[in-house]
């Protein structure tokens, strides 16, 4: 048993079980994820391996990592990816699929109120001109909300609709912050479009090299496509799609 043993150096990793004492909780060691501090000692609360990490203030963060997917929950301020399930004039409901980069195993329910759709002219927002059911949106968690769902906000340029399908069923191309166009019918539809910062242009161009229609893309893959929106209303945009 590793009872009473100290947390290993970064190279080695000791296997621990819940209740194992890792080290004393003094001014050099801080309890991190997977550990609990109790009566002056740091104990493990998961099965896994111990890792220590030097922090800026010269303390060591003691963590237990399981090597499996961690169960995380949305917290205020985290950016989430969600799919719209229901829209009415006052609010929409959605299912939260990812928190940051992490894909969730279990979905959480979110709610976006009309006032939180955009930062300016908040009273003139019409929900149906911003979101439709089925859209994939990026949003920020405002608060844990009521008992039923997390309260979200898209009141930033980088937040809003990331992926949307037109009435014809095709994945739409953004034109401006408020409009998207269907590549099949050329019909324009209104959305509150997210300006997604270009991260992986090369990756996106490589994916679009084969012209098979892709109905479902991961939100990351559409980044550069959407980034073209602000360069304007040009035919090249369509060619990329």
């Amino acid at each position: 048993m590793s009872q009473g043993s100290s947390a290993g150096s970064p190279g080695e990793a000791i296997c621990v079980v819940p209740g194992d004492c890792l080290c004393a909780a003094d001014d050099k060691h801080v309890a991190g994820k997977g550990t609990i501090e109790r009566s002056g000692y740091i104990y493990s609360c998961l099965v896994g391996r111990v890792y220590t990490q030097q922090q800026e203030d010269k303390t060591e963060l003691v963590e237990v990592r399981t090597g499996q997917e961690q169960n995380i929950v949305p917290t205020a301020g985290s950016v989430v990816t969600a799919k719209v399930t229901y829209v009415n004039p006052r609010f929409l409901r959605c299912e939260i699929l990812c928190i940051g980069e992490t894909v969730l195993k279990h979905k959480f329910r979110g709610m976006l109120k009309k006032e939180d759709v955009r930062a300016t002219e908040r009273d003139k927002v019409k929900m149906y001109e911003c979101f439709r059911p089925g859209d994939v949106i990026l949003a920020k968690v405002v608060s844990l909300g009521d008992a039923l769902s997390y309260v979200l906000s898209t009141a930033e340029n980088e937040l809003g609709v990331a992926l949307a399908h037109s009435e014809a069923g095709a994945l739409m191309v953004p034109l401006s912050w408020a409009e998207m166009r269907c590549p099949l019918t050329q019909a324009r539809e209104l959305r509150k479009v997210a300006k997604i910062p270009p991260e992986d242009v090369a990756f996106r161009l490589a994916r679009s090299a084969d012209r098979r229609p892709r109905r479902r893309l991961s939100p990351g893959a559409t980044g550069p496509l959407l980034s073209i929106q602000h360069t304007a209303d040009q035919p090249e945009v369509q060619a990329v799609a």
């Binding site: 079980v17 819940p18 609990i36 099965v47």
Partner: peptide
């Protein structure tokens, strides 16, 4: 619970 990776105080 241990297999699920739920944080436990102890066994």
């Amino acid at each position: 619970l241990i297999d699920a990776g739920v944080a436990l105080r102890d066994y």
